[in-house]
């Protein structure tokens, strides 16, 4: 169970990215965060594993205070939280296998990992993860030789080898076309259902939200403006949609949109 209490983030330049955000996520949920670019989705996700330090508020995960953790403790927490990015964030010049193995860094002896040595079990685990996302044969390729969809699958494999209890996915399909989007979200859904991994995912397209989310929160200007269950989002009206996305927004089918949106 993840509890976010009164979370606020103000950047150095004075931008208030999050204001008093509070919500709860039960284990095994597929929570989708919706909102315009700049509404604070990315900041929120990065505050949960403290890639960005929140200014105020608390995050409790399975009873542990993430916000109070020291750096060693924080690393322990982080290794149980997989993260997937809009731009995949792979080390482009390294091999696919090495990118996936990077997911095991939190578990390996720092000295061995620095000279590029991983236990055999970890390498097995990495191959297994690549098998699960269907690109085992690409293991020795350089990451930048892969297509966008394949690169995101490497990103998922990297998260998988962490043996995560939770996955944070920041616009995982915004750089991909709709067909690939379903494939990538399919993997996340599978992990969510089969391994009971909690998923926090920010998305842009309403029909993807309607298909995959078990609960939804909507952000606008750093504030939670919408909370809903799977049923709520299915019944979501244009009025509510516009509350989140602003007056000028139209309800757009994912089929008409193709990638390239910047995340917030």
């Amino acid at each position: 169970m993840l509890v976010v209490e009164n979370l606020s983030k103000t950047y150095e330049d004075g931008t208030r990215a999050l204001r008093n955000v509070s919500f709860e996520v039960k284990d095994g949920e597929f929570l989708v965060i919706i909102g315009l670019s700049g509404s604070g989705k990315s900041t929120l996700l990065r505050c949960i594993n403290r890639l960005i330090e929140p200014t105020e508020g608390r995050i409790l995960w399975d009873g542990e205070d993430v916000t109070a953790a020291d750096s060693a403790h924080l690393r322990e927490i982080r290794r149980k939280i997989g993260m997937i990015f809009q731009h995949f964030n792979l080390v482009k010049r390294s091999s696919v296998l090495k990118n996936v193995l990077a997911g095991r860094l939190g578990y390996t002896n720092p000295i061995w990992s620095i000279i590029n040595r991983f236990p055999t079990e970890d390498i097995e685990l990495a191959y297994e993860a690549l098998r699960q996302v269907g690109i085992e044969e690409k293991a020795d390729k350089r990451a930048d030789e892969l297509s966008g969809g394949q690169q995101q699958r490497v990103g998922i494999a990297r998260a998988l080898v962490q043996d995560p209890k939770m996955i944070l996915a920041d616009e995982p399909v915004a750089s991909l076309d709709p067909v690939l989007a379903h494939s990538i979200l399919g993997y996340l859904e599978k992990m969510n259902q089969e391994r009971k991994i909690t998923v926090l995912c920010s998305l842009h397209y309403l029909d993807l939200v309607q298909k995959y989310a078990t609960s939804v929160i909507g952000l606008r200007d750093g504030q939670v403006v919408y909370r809903g269950t799977r049923e709520d989002i299915r019944r979501m009206t244009d009025r509510e949609f516009k509350d989140i996305y602003g007056e000028e927004a139209e309800r757009v089918s994912a089929g008409t949109l193709t990638g390239g949106r910047e995340n917030g």
Binding site: R46, L51, R75, R78, G82, N89, A102, L105, G106, L168
Partner: peptide, 16 residues
């Protein structure tokens, strides 16, 4: 900066 963020998120140390 993307990969740095991604590696940090896996629980890696600074050196890693």
């Amino acid at each position: 900066p993307g990969p740095i963020e991604a590696i940090q998120a896996t629980g890696a140390t600074h050196l890693q």
